[in-house]
Design a protein around this nucleic acid. Structure first.
Length: 383
DNA sequence: CGTGCAAGGACATTAGCTCA
DNA sequence: TGAGCTAATGTCCTTGCACG
């Protein structure tokens, strides 16, 4: 039988994945968002079914019937029907789940009991179920949910994979720093003594990065990007475009060392455009496009540590859970709008120096290198 | 085919700054 | 000078994956 999710604790962003499923099956419609992440009433997708894989053994389809009154649950490739449940019940449980967790505090929170009961009825034991393996392979990356939809305007039916991010928890990350996403910079004016002194800097038990930064300035030490620490990351960036690692390295150094204090991706790129570190003939187009490609790659599944095949899903997109519980999406028809959205609404984020193994000078073959590391995270305020 | 550990992701907490 | 912001940094939880 189905394992109960009662008592399971997940963070809000993870519950959001289950919430989206309930909400979409309840409403049968997914509105698109405009540039500012506001509901676009004229543009929507009809949700025909949600496809989900709980266990490796079977793929389940949640099909919304013709008049949008009920959801039929059946295994793919088979005729038998496991359950038929009214769409109203999905809506109701979506609401209960949202109301039940939105004000809770803590790293991970439980869902209301009634919703857990409902989960059991609809064969959900992992609210954060792996999306369908076969589809995931096809579309690549980070799809959290697969939906068969019909475009409200063109009537074209297709299966789309969506990645889900929620606005009602904290801001999600787009590209996570990891222990393999460091950029290495070769140092001038360094020696063993300086290395030890620098590495020993600490403020209130933490790394004290601003102190470290001062130290670099005071000792007239400059940084020259050489490569990423992990060759895999280098290859992945290379796949986006050849000088991508240099472009990112410029942003990372800007974020942690040179920047006057505005870490938004868009502003950073404006600074880079002015500096034109690669000396390209068309900086105002070039850097923006490069970074947008990076953001899309990160969004669709590229990480620093794993070899990446360069696949971005060609259709599909991004579902956002708003803080009032509304569910909106960007999909491939709005590709440019979405790229623009990412560009305008993310920033380079400082990450823990100890956790992500950066900020301490290392010596390789008598040369001194400093690893730097950042994440890319969504902003709080949409613009 | 379990199991243990690292990676990954979100969140909490603390520190530091700004402006009334 | 303290309320309220943002930046800095650690904590907690789960999942993926290597290893035996």
């Amino acid at each position: 039988m189905v394992e109960s999710i009662k008592g399971k604790k997940l963070n809000k962003g993870e519950w959001a994945e289950f919430y989206v499923m309930l909400k979409l099956l309840g409403e049968g419609r997914l509105y698109t968002a405009d540039k500012l992440l506001q509901k676009n009433y004229k543009s929507y997708l009809d949700v025909l079914k949600v496809i989900r894989q709980e266990m490796t053994s079977h793929v389940l389809e949640y099909i919304i019937d013709e008049d949008k009154s009920a959801v039929i649950i059946k295994p793919q490739e088979k005729e038998e029907i496991w359950a038929t449940i009214s769409t109203d019940e999905f809506s109701e449980n979506a609401k209960n789940l949202f109301d039940g967790i939105k004000d809770l505090k803590g790293n991970s929170v439980p869902a209301p009991d009634s919703v857990c009961e409902f989960a059991k009825i609809i064969y959900v034991s992992k609210p954060k179920a792996p999306a369908v393996k076969a589809l995931k392979k096809e579309f690549g990356g980070k799809n959290d949910i697969f939906i068969e939809v019909r475009d409200g305007q063109t009537s074209i039916v297709s299966v789309m994979g969506f990645s889900i991010k929620s606005k009602f928890g904290h801001n999600p990350t787009l590209f996570n720093a990891g222990s393999s996403s460091q950029f290495l910079y070769k140092l001038s004016n360094c020696n063993d003594e300086i290395m030890d002194e620098f590495n020993a800097i600490t403020v209130n038990g933490g790394r004290g990065w601003s102190k470290c930064k001062e130290y670099l300035t005071d000792n007239n030490i400059s940084l020259q990007f050489t490569s990423t620490q992990n060759p895999v990351y280098n290859d992945n960036l290379f796949l986006i475009r050849e000088p991508m690692s240099k472009i990112m390295a410029w942003c990372v150094k800007d974020r942690l060392i040179d920047s006057p204090g505005n870490y938004e991706v868009m502003e950073t790129v404006e600074r880079m455009t002015d500096a034109n570190p690669l000396n390209v003939p068309n900086p105002q187009i070039y850097y923006e496009k490069a970074i947008k490609d990076f953001l899309m790659a990160g969004f669709t599944g590229m990480t620093a540590g794993k070899p990446w095949d360069g696949k971005e899903q060609v259709n599909g997109g991004y579902i956002s859970v708003m803080d009032d519980g509304d569910v909106l999406c960007y999909h491939s028809n709005d590709r440019e709008a979405f790229r623009d959205y990412l560009y305008r609404n993310t920033h380079f984020e400082y990450v823990s120096a100890d956790k992500y193994v950066w900020s301490r000078i290392i010596k390789i073959d008598n040369d001194y290198y400093l690893p730097l590391n950042v994440s890319v995270r969504f902003n709080t305020h949409i613009r």
